[in-house]
Structures are given as C-alpha cells and as structure tokens.
Nucleic acid binder design. Sequence first.
DNA 1: TATGAATGAGCTTTCATTCAT
DNA 2: CATGAATGAAAGCTCATTCAT
Lengths: 200, 200, 200, 200
Amino acid sequence: MNDKFFDLKKEKQDKMINAALKVFSLCDYRRASTDDVVREAGISKGLIFHYFTNKAGLYEFLYAYSIKYLAIELYQIVSINEHDYFELIRQTQQAHLRVMRQYPYLIAFLSKAEEETDPEVVPLIQAKRTERKKEYQKIFDRADMDGWKPGVDTEVARNIIHFTVRGIEDAYLKSGEFTPEELIERIDEYMNFLKPAMYQ
Amino acid sequence: MNDKFFDLKKEKQDKMINAALKVFSLCDYRRASTDDVVREAGISKGLIFHYFTNKAGLYEFLYAYSIKYLAIELYQIVSINEHDYFELIRQTQQAHLRVMRQYPYLIAFLSKAEEETDPEVVPLIQAKRTERKKEYQKIFDRADMDGWKPGVDTEVARNIIHFTVRGIEDAYLKSGEFTPEELIERIDEYMNFLKPAMYQ
Amino acid sequence: MNDKFFDLKKEKQDKMINAALKVFSLCDYRRASTDDVVREAGISKGLIFHYFTNKAGLYEFLYAYSIKYLAIELYQIVSINEHDYFELIRQTQQAHLRVMRQYPYLIAFLSKAEEETDPEVVPLIQAKRTERKKEYQKIFDRADMDGWKPGVDTEVARNIIHFTVRGIEDAYLKSGEFTPEELIERIDEYMNFLKPAMYQ
Amino acid sequence: MNDKFFDLKKEKQDKMINAALKVFSLCDYRRASTDDVVREAGISKGLIFHYFTNKAGLYEFLYAYSIKYLAIELYQIVSINEHDYFELIRQTQQAHLRVMRQYPYLIAFLSKAEEETDPEVVPLIQAKRTERKKEYQKIFDRADMDGWKPGVDTEVARNIIHFTVRGIEDAYLKSGEFTPEELIERIDEYMNFLKPAMYQ
DNA sequence: TATGAATGAGCTTTCATTCAT
DNA sequence: CATGAATGAAAGCTCATTCAT
C-alpha cells in the first residue's frame, strides 16, 4: 500500500475504511466490488488503486488495520490482572462493543475474513490470522482454572465456550435484529448457563 | 433441469454431482466456476447446461438433491423411538457419516449453502432451507427432557449443544485433517462433557 | 447432400422439407435453429446432418429444391402463348398459389432467402438466385407491348409492376391476415389500377 | 443507457453510432455481433456495455436516436405548406439524403429495423415504430388530391407510390452501386412515370 | 492528488456438429 | 439407418485495473 494514505485527513481515511469494511463484510472477497466500495465512500475509482495498488491490497490493509485496532481496544479493556475465564470473555466482548462503535462493520468483517478461502487473498492474511489467534490465546492464557471442577478437560471446556460465543455472534451478524448491547447480554446469559458446568 | 439426467448411468450422475458438490463447497456460488465443475467431472462445458439449464439451476438441483438424500439417511438411521437428546445428536451424526461416504462434500456443501446470500440463488433454495430446518426440528422435538436438571433453560441448553456441534464440524470441514469417523468421536467427547451440565 | 434422402418415403421427405421451410421462413438463417427444425419434423438431431451434412447444406438444398419446384409449376401454369404482361403476372401468381398448397412456407422461404446476407450461405445460393431471376425474365420476355402507350419506358413500367406485386406479397407474408386467394385478388386490383397507365 | 455517452466528444459518439448502425444494418439483431461493432468503432469491448448496458440497449438507443435525427431533418426539409403528393415524396427523399450524409447507414438501419422480429428487441422499439409511422402519415395527410383524376382509388394509388419508392430504396441499399444522389434521381424518374396515372 | 473513461481477461451460456450405440 | 448425449468454439457480459487529464 501507499503510506501517503495516512497523510489524508483522518475523516477521509475512516470514510474509506468504513466503506470497504461494510462492503467486504456483506459480500465475500470475490463478489465484493470495488465499484461498491467507491460508491459507498464517495470517492473516485482511481483513488483506491492509488493508495492500495489493487483490490487484494485493500483487503490486506483492511485486515491488518482491523486486527491492530481490535488489539488496541483489547489491550485497553481486558485487564492484565483478570484471571477468571468468564470475566475475560466478558471483557473481550466489551472491547468488541467499543470497536463496533467506531467501525460498525469491523467485527463482522473479521468474522467473514476468517471464512475467506479465496486463493488470491488467503496468503495475504494468513500470517495475521495466526497472529490474531495468538493474541486471543495470550489473553486467555492468563486465565487460571481456580475454582473449576477437578478433572474438567480444559481444552474441551474452552472450545465449548468459544463455539457458543461464536454461534451467538454469527446469529447476531446475520440477523441484524439486535443491538451490540443485546449481543453482550445474550452472551452473558449463555455463559451463566455454562459456568456451573465448569465451576465447583 | 432436464430429467434425462436421471437416465444417465448412476456412476456418471454421481461423478457430476460429486464434482459440483466439491466445487460449490469450496467456493461460494458466485466464485465457483462452471469450468471447475466441468474439469473436476471430466465432462464438456455444454453438458452441464444441457442438464441443468444454467449455473443457478445446477445449484438448485444440488441443494434439493442433497437435502433429499440426507433426509433419507436421517429417516433410516435416527430411531423414531429415541427420546434422549444426546442420543439423537449421535444418530444424526451417524447419518451424516453415511452420507459423507457416498458424497464426501455433501455435508460441507449444505453447510456452505446455509450461508449463501447471492440473490441469484437464495430464492431458489429458500423454501428447501426452511423445510430442512423443520426436518431437524421434527427429530429433536421427539426428545424429552426426562432426567434433565430441573430449571435448565432448554432453549439455551439446546443452542449450546448445536453451536458446539457446528463448531466442531466447521473445524473439520475447514481443516480436512481428520476423518469423518474422528469427527463423530470428537463430537461424542464434547457431548459427554456437556451431559452432566444438563442431566441430574 | 446425401442423395439417399430421395430414397426415403415421399411423406417423410416432405415432413422434413416442410419443417425446414417453416423454420427458415420465420427466422433468418443464423437465428433459425436446427433444434427447431428437428422438433418440427419429429426426427432426431443426427438425421439432418446425415442427409444434409450441415445447416448450410440443408439451406442450400432447400433453396435449390424450392426454385426447382416453383419452376415446374410456373412451367405448367404460365402459358407459353401468353403475351400480355398483366396476364403473365396473373398466371405467375396462380403458380405461387398452387405451390403454397403443397408447401405452405415455400414462397415465404424464397422471399426471405432473397434478403439473406449471411456470408455462410450467400455463396451457396447466389448462382441459383440468378438462375431464378432469369427464369422470371424468360417468362416476361414473352410479353409484347402491343397496345401499350407509345413512349412508355418499359423498364420503369415493369419495375413499378414488380415493386407493387412484391409490396403486396410482403404485406401478406408478414401479416398472415389474409388467404393466398385474397392475395391474388388484391394483386388483381392493383394491376387493374396500373393497366390504364400502360395501355392506350 | 448511460447518459454520460452524450458527454463524449461528438466525434467519438458518432464513431460509435456509425459503427453500430453499419453492423446492425448489414446483419439482423441476433447475428450482429458486439465484437464487430467494437472493431468497427475502434473501441474496447467493455465500453459499449458501459454506455448501453447490453446489446439490446445499444439497439434501442440506435433506433430512438435514428428516428429522432430523421424527424429533425424531415421537419426542416419538408415544407408545412406543400400539398402536392409527389412533391412531398421528393422532399422526404431530400431529408433522407441529408441524413445519409451524416450517418451513411441510418436509413438502411431503420429499413432493416422495420423487419426485425427478434423478441428481445421488438418490445423495445415497437412504440417508436408506431410513432415513426405516424410522423410519415402526418406529412402525407397534408397532401390534397387537387388535380387528381376523379375516381382514382387514393389508397391504391398511394400504396403503389410507396411500394415503388421502397423497391428502389431496397435495390439501392442492397447494391451499394450508386450514390444517394442517384437514388433521388431514380425515384424522380419513377414518380414522373406515375404522375400521369394520377393527375388529370 | 484525484478523476472516471477505457481496457481486456475471464466467465456464463448457446448451438451447430460429432459419434458411440 | 436412426438416435440423442456429448462436444467446444463463439458470443454476450462483468469488473478489476490502467492512464490521460
């Protein structure tokens, strides 16, 4: 990408970023059209190629920008001293909520990007995908299992929690029927169901 | 579609079906190319249009065929007298396993098709999608909650179970690193974890 | 073409000829589809290629057959001793009428073929087109101008007559609203209008 | 269509219009290929679709443009005070002549378009076809029959005149052997032949 | 820097033609 | 002979990308 993008007014940068996040979160990479991005952002066709070389470059930039932005929020919101697993889930969701307030489509975009299989872009985001996963692992590695039932298979337990969170998020992203705040509330409800299965 | 397709040798029918299932399960509708289907099936370009009119027609046929085939297996494997929720999950997975032996990509295709949003095909499969959902509901409606902890929120519990099954399946479909049999085993393991949370 | 075509039962020959005449008289060469011919004739796809090599071959045969058939009728109906121009026109139309009774689309086909510009078939029928024109010239060369106004430009007069006949025929072929008999009557009416302009 | 077409330099617009008129006047709608138009106009494949959406859109535009352009010339050349039938014919032909100087294939295109039966485009031009016919009727309705022989069947007389004009035009459009000026002259000659048949 | 007209490779679809049965 | 399933070249159309202004 062309670093001069960052010399643009923050406002214009965000207009382009939000437009692209929206388009790429609603359609997969291939179907998303640069025309749509351009129309949504209210800029000219050439500009996107001026700053991002090509569609794949735009996608790559968006992915990198998104996980970086999310990482910052996670860093600020998720307490370094929190060791309770469910509380970490909660704080993670709070971070998502804040991200969505600035970039409404960022979380949806990342979720869609995880599924992306297009050989044109997978290589461009693969490394960052791993990085992102590690970021989350780092957070949840802080968790101790104090107070958990002995003999609970931690791996299995964690996966169930994450599958559940993802399931709820997916339903949210697809339906668009409820607000980010309701999403958080819903996740809470499910976590409260799962807690007794883990805790003594 | 052209019903003469069914006059072809079963072998050739399946070669075409398997090729199309594979291509459509790896790529979404728009990105999936008829060239790929044709190459994978080892047939000529025109043939697919001869039998299925157009790409959307092929997709529509595949979806209808898939849920019908799956329904037959479900009907045969899932016992009408089974009322235990986890056992029903188990039998459902057994049916999936059998389907995958004949059509390795069928389950993955259906999973992908659930996410499909392309306006060219959504109308063609929407009705069947609903039908399919009902089919599953009918199965799990048989379940009684005998022996479940009183006060368990059934809706939440069921969703957690399904999110977990889906999470495992997704990981399976994406990685391709393990066999259908291992998938079943894995699901069993997770279900065994969840059972104590539901049962008294 | 394959001369064995003529070994077929006359009935089957005519079924194929009539089907092809119909299709080629309704659509121009390129747009006319062999599938339509085959469906209309109730024969199999391969047969048409067996007897006529390809679509152009079928067209070439049809044209040659049509002008030959028409020539025979002209020869029988148009009197060798008739020297009155308008009477020759009349007899020519009578011949057309008889042709249409056996092959309803033959005249329309020839009319359409005159307009055909497709480089794939024009070379195949060009010679016969000229031949056909000569055939008509031969008929009208018999006409003497006895009784015509002196000083009438014969060339111009003849052309006006022919443009008029063609104009009426075209309207007939396009509308399909009146019968071949009415066509003849209509032409008579116009010829009666023109006669005083030519005759003393 | 995309109205930005009209923002192009007049020269380029006309290059595209003339190319398309030529291709569509030589071949009917179906057989005319966008590749030919593009080659003839010296532009790229995509451009034609950028401005006219699709082949049918190009055809529709061409027809509308052609009759509008012709109507303007007719309005300017054909005198509102002229009531002599043959003089109106003459002036109409003068208008055609002027049109052909700017767009050599426009008259031929309209002539071909009158015959077009392709269901893909007929609905797009039908209304304009009727409009065009009315335009001509309006012109010839001005004609009085002053000085015509009493008892002349006006309908028949007019049709003969028009069949003759059309016959000469057709020959002109097909042969390409003579100039528009010669066409006018030829029509004059034929009209002079017909006048005595109508006038006292 | 910003624009948007222009490009052309790539994909879907059609249909004359072939060929195994 | 007759069939019709199978072929593949050709045509319409899309859209990422370029480039003159």
